[in-house]
Design a protein around this nucleic acid. Structure first.
Lengths: 168, 168
DNA sequence: GGCTATCCAGTTGTGGGCAATTGAATTGTG
DNA sequence: CACAATTCAATTGCCCACAACTGGATAGCC
């Protein structure tokens, strides 16, 4: 049961005349909420499209990185994906159980664990080639529009990460 | 430990000449990944800013709706937030434990549960008024730019929801 | 060589998101 | 009125995100 979206963007002005702070509250709701909602909506579409491949959206992101870069230590994978070991360790374990990756301690540095796509994992790429088209189609956006949006979001993320690091 | 972001947007072209499908894969990574990353980055900033209030980001979203609309059944709350009972039930229970809301079966329809902000919950709004300013500041974006982005994301969400419902 | 600081993956605990199911209440229909 | 279909909140089970911590490995420094 997916709830019917009722975006606050479309909600009418409240009965009381808005003070400045109220304005801020509504605006704030729009940025944070629309972004959150869009992210979850994407997740929903990926859930449908990736069902055939038997992997989840975060697992797909991991495979994308591995397809592009080949074997990587968990640390590097985390840097690419902006995820830490707390998220990646169990996720990679599931991918290993699914037979898509292998994890092996690096011989050169025993702290590090190399994540390597298996034959099966590499083969999965062929079936994944159809995914992006379907996703782009689902957005109803033009390529340029997507690129533009992506750029803005990238700038946004950088600013937010910087702000979070600075404690506010 | 927060991983250092290494956005794929900035990654150089791969060694092999990209076929069309490769292009699609990279582009895809940019939309879905940047959106996902931006959402999590927002979450991080909210985590910091909301620590004082003792609530999480999703809990804050719930309180925003309650502050604006007053008491609401769980169902309505879910429509506003695009969340179902599987997410809301435990979340609301935590908000109740924190003393910010009360949940009571509707007398008119015993299936429905009304969620009502307590005095304490209503009082929290005053302290929350400072939040949006800090968030907007953290984005480094101008108001108009935020509005624009928000509008795009709203359109995107609508399209994605529609596509997911249609099974692709 | 020994000591300490740092780095790395993994684990634990809390919270969120969602599909699927349950069970009770209500509505619609004959 | 009776019975089937629908609605609603809650629960279960799985996965993801992240903070905090653990334990082992390495690097740097004396």
């Amino acid at each position: 049961m997916t709830a019917t979206p009722t975006p606050p963007t479309a909600s009418p002005a409240p009965a009381a005349p808005p003070e400045a702070a109220d304005d801020w509250l509504r605006l704030d709701q729009q940025i944070c909420f629309t972004l959150n909602a869009a992210s979850r909506a994407f997740n929903g579409v990926y859930r449908v499209v990736l069902k055939d491949l038997g992997i989840t959206y975060p697992q797909y992101l991991v495979m994308l990185v591995l397809w592009e870069h080949g074997a990587l230590p968990v640390k590097k994978l985390g840097e690419h994906l902006r995820l830490d070991s707390g998220t990646l360790s169990p996720l990679l374990k599931r991918l290993e159980t699914a037979g898509l990756v292998r994890r092996e301690r690096s011989v050169r540095d025993e702290r590090s664990v190399e994540v390597r796509p298996t034959e099966e994992g590499i083969a999965l790429r062929q079936r994944a080639l159809a995914v992006p088209r379907r996703i782009v189609a689902a957005t109803g956006f033009e390529i340029d529009e997507i690129r533009d949006l992506s750029g803005r979001l990238h700038r946004l993320t950088a600013a937010l990460d910087k702000a979070a690091d600075e404690g506010a």
